[in-house]
Structure formats: C-alpha cells, structure tokens
Design a protein around this nucleic acid. Structure first.
Length: 464
RNA sequence: UCCGGCGUAGCGCAGUGGUAGCGCAGGUGGCUGUUAACCACUUGGUCGCAGGUUCGAAUCCUGCCGCCGGAGCCA
C-alpha cells in the first residue's frame, strides 16, 4: 500500500477503506481506556494527523507505549470522523509499524518550546519543528510562485554562472575559488601568486551577482531572470545578511526605470497573494507565534499600490521630520537604516520605492540621469526588513559608461565584454535584484534571516 | 569590524560574597476521548574557558571563546 500524505488525509471523507500514513511522532497521549493518541506529522502540511492506537494492536505494549516525539512510524487504518474537537478526522489504526524509535533522553527536541537561537545549533533537526516546517513550505511556495510569475510573462530562466572571474563587479568582498595548495602557493618571478597555475588559469571567485551575465542574455533574448545562489564574503553580522543567499535578478531589454519599478511591484504583490492563498495554516502559525498582524499586512500589500518617491524627496521628508536621527539626513549621503525605517514604518507605513539616487553613491553601471547628479536607480524598501530590492536602468551609452568606470578608478579593459553590449546594438535595459531570504523573512515574520534558509552561512557559521 | 547585552540541569530561567534553585522535558505511579492534557513522587549541574582578588566566588576583576541585538556593507 502506498502511503497517503497527511495533507490529503485531513481533507478526505471518512470511509471503510484502509489507508496508510507515515511520519514522525509529535506527541503521544495515553488513555487508561486502553488506547493511545498519536499525533504524527509528515511535513506535507502544518497540521498533525491524530491516530488512535488501541491496546488490541499486537505491539501496543511492546512498541506503541514506547513511542516518543521524533520516532518514525508507518500506520495503517481507517479514517473516522473524530469524536474530539480540534480535528475533523482521525486514523483508527489497524497496524502501527515503528520504523525508528527516538530516545527522549538524548533527543534535543521535545514537546517544549525551543528558542530559534538554540535551534540554529541543531540545523539538521530543526526542520522537524513547527516553525521550520512552515518556513520550508512557505519558502518552497515563494520559489515556485516566482518562477510562475516570470514564466507567465515570457521571461526566460537564465542559469548564470556560480564561478566567475569578474573580480570587480561593484559589490563587496568575494569568496575566492582555487585548487592551489594553500600550504605551498606558487609564486611568479615577481613574488605574486601565480594564478596561471590555478584551475582556471586566473583568479576566480564565487559570484556576487548574475547581473552582468544577465544583461548579455537580455540584450539578445529580451526578458530574462536568474534565480540562484549568491555569495558575499563581507563580515556582516546582522539579522538581515547571509554569506550565501539566493537572489532573483530579472533583466529586461527595451525597458526603463519605470518599467523596472512596475515589475518589482507586480512581483512582490504576486508572491504576497500567492503565499496567502497557498500557505494559510503556516502563515496562521507565524501570525500567532511570531508576528501578530502579519496576515493583515500581507493582505493589504497584495492589493495596494506602492508609493514611489525620489531620493531628493526622501531627504526632504527626513530633513523636515519632527525627530532627531543619529545620522542627520543630507543630500549625497546614503540613506541610513534609521532613515529607511522612518519612511517605511512611520511616514508611509508600507512599501516604498525610492528612485534617482546620487551618482556618487551608486554603482558604475547605473544610467546617468539628465540632471547629471543622479542615476536611474531604485530601492524597494519594506517595513522591518529594509531594502528587499535594489535595481536600476543600466547605462547603455558607451562613452558615458566608460567614463563612469574610469571615474571610480576601475579599468575599462576589465569590462571589455560588458562594454561590447554597448558597442554592438546597444539598447536601453533595466533590472533588479531581489533577496529571496528577505522575502521569506517578510512573508513569515521570522526575525533573523538565518532562520529563513535551511542551512545559513555567515561569518564563523558553516557547521552543518 | 565597532557598540551593547547574555553564557547556571536536556530546554527556558532565578540566584549580586557564605552548603546551587524553580518551571518544562525525562523516569515511576495515578487519572482521563485526549489534544501545549492533568496530579504526585523522582533522576539530573566542572555555574562558557583561563587566570586573579578573598578565609570563602555562579556572584567581584582581567583576558579569551561563543551567541544575540544594534550599526556599517548590501539582497
């Protein structure tokens, strides 16, 4: 007999047919009436299946009374309407097969509540908790819906390389990839590391962004998106940063900043609506245990219109704000976290798109605006989470782009292939990067981004 | 990396110089179509590590390690 997922059993009409469920024990309650209640969870949904295991079962005393949270079982029986409150149906077992016992003395997860901090030290077991089961299901739905969103709009899913030789992509520190023997690094005559002897014959790193590669395909196929792992070797120790995270980077040819912002808004609203529709039980858990108001906020945002202001307007709002900031807002300085939070959490109380940032504080590839002072950049800011999307219209004018590279002390020769896009049939194009874990964070209310990914990588954190 | 906080039983915590405690979990017994079950009894600790002050340190001092929060970097 094939096992049926609990998600399906819970909405099945009671009947005389034998069905089979399999999963892990969450709790066992014994009745002196001569039977036990087993609650089992198989990860297919948030809810558990209540199993009635009667003393008439051959292994009742020998096995069933020894079941503890974490033990794995396969149960055969008949679905009946439940006499108790809390569940519509329950499984009256005709056979309970114990697949693996779980010693309660040494098993770290019991019935008691465990803090997220502690669970990070149990990354291999935390998937068995309510919170991480819910996180994993929400994460899965969000990933699926991102693909659905883009595929429905005829965006091509592009697999950007994970290993790259672009060591100056504008973003932060990179993880080096090498097969050299670090105990005996080969040197050139000048004493430098001889990368000619390395695997790729040159210095290589893990990607910090698929954008440049994305642009090359957008400038051939029109609309593309990437969705893959991204690596930043920054020594960031915050609840919003990971050393390894997943990023979605759409790139559209024949598009400007307004098209870019519209796409970002549509994508976010699509994911909010989808997760509300597909993960009601998981979100209800997060609403109840982590963040009251989560559901109402997602529902509101799914149908709202995002506000857009320019960077200059943002600075004006901050300057006029009836409060003091640790860092006084000033045109030309990047917005501080406290500024972004004030704008999203107090002024607009919702998502906010800020466009047209000062040239000097943004990357070289962003398109220079006619005012010469700003570039066609945008950040989408969310309450609590902060910057979830960063994007821009790309500079398509060869001379302007070359000058921007030189202005930053970079060598245009390094970007030769990138500049080729502007030499040969250049077109206006735009795109952005969406931090996937920050989206998961926002949709779940999880406080720390390290709980929004199965195995977080961060400074000094790579045990599992 | 900087600033702040915290490391005491498997987990969550109290204990601010004088014999290490509580709740939960676990075990045993009782009770019950139960559902964070309940009641009684009970097992369990090198107080993060190293040094120092003191008759005496979980407690005070110094250093180190780890974790969390805030900041910076950004998605």
């Amino acid at each position: 007999m094939i096992r049926t997922r609990i998600r399906e059993l819970l909405v099945t009409t009671p009947g005389q047919d034998l069905v089979q469920a399999a999963g892990w024990i969450r709790t066992r309650r014994d009745s002196k009436g001569g039977f036990s209640f087993l609650e089992i969870n198989d990860g297919s949904c948030f809810a558990n299946l209540q199993v009635i295991a009667d003393q008439g079962l051959a292994n009742y005393a020998s096995d069933i009374r020894r079941l503890h949270p974490g033990a794995s079982v396969r149960v055969q029986g008949r679905l009946m309407a439940s006499a108790g409150a809390g569940q519509a149906v329950e499984l009256h077992a005709t056979e309970v097969q114990v697949l693996g016992f779980c010693d309660p003395e040494s098993y770290p997860l019991g019935k008691q509540r465990i803090h997220f901090d502690r669970l990070r030290e149990l990354a291999h077991l935390r998937a068995r908790t309510n919170a991480f089961g819910a996180m994993a299901r929400v994460r899965n739905v969000l990933a699926d819906e991102i693909h659905r969103f883009f595929q429905a709009r005829d965006f091509l899913y592009l697999h950007a390389p994970v290993i790259t030789a672009n060591d100056c992509e504008g973003a932060g520190a990179m993880f080096q990839v090498t097969t050299l023997d670090l105990a005996r690094v080969p040197r050139t005559a000048m004493g430098a590391v001889d990368y000619d002897q390395d695997f790729f014959g040159r210095r290589a790193s893990l990607t910090v962004s698929g954008q440049l590669e994305g642009e090359t395909y957008a400038c051939a196929l029109g609309d593309i998106y990437t969705f893959g792992p991204t690596f930043r070797a920054e020594n960031s120790n915050t609840r919003r940063h990971l050393a390894e995270f997943w990023m979605i980077e759409p790139e559209m040819a024949f598009a400007d900043l307004q098209d870019d912002a519209a796409l970002a808004e549509a994508l976010l609203k699509h994911t909010f609506a989808a997760v509300l529709r597909r993960c009601p039980d998981d979100l209800a858990f997060f609403e109840q245990r982590l963040q009251p108001g989560l559901l109402a906020r997602l529902e509101r945002l799914a149908t709202s219109t995002f506000r857009t202001i320019t960077y200059t307007e943002a600075v004006e709002l901050l300057t006029k704000a009836n409060r003091t900031f640790e860092f006084a807002p000033q045109w030309g300085m990047d917005l501080q976290s406290e500024h972004e939070r004030y704008l999203t959490e107090e002024v607009f109380q919702g998502p906010l798109t800020v466009i047209n940032y000062p040239r000097a504080i943004k990357a070289f590839y962003m398109r220079r605006n006619d005012d010469e002072r700003t570039v066609a950049a945008m950040d989408v800011l969310l309450p609590e989470v902060g910057e979830i999307i960063g994007g821009s219209q790309r500079e398509e004018r060869l001379e302007v782009l070359e000058r921007a590279i030189r202005d930053r002390g970079l060598d245009p020769a390094t970007y030769n292939w990138y500049l080729d896009l502007r030499r040969f049939g250049s077109v206006p194009h735009a795109g952005f990067g969406l931090g996937f874990e920050r989206l998961v964070q926002f949709c779940t209310g999880l406080h720390n981004i390290r709980d929004a990914i199965p195995y977080p990588r961060a400074p000094r954190t790579c045990e599992y």
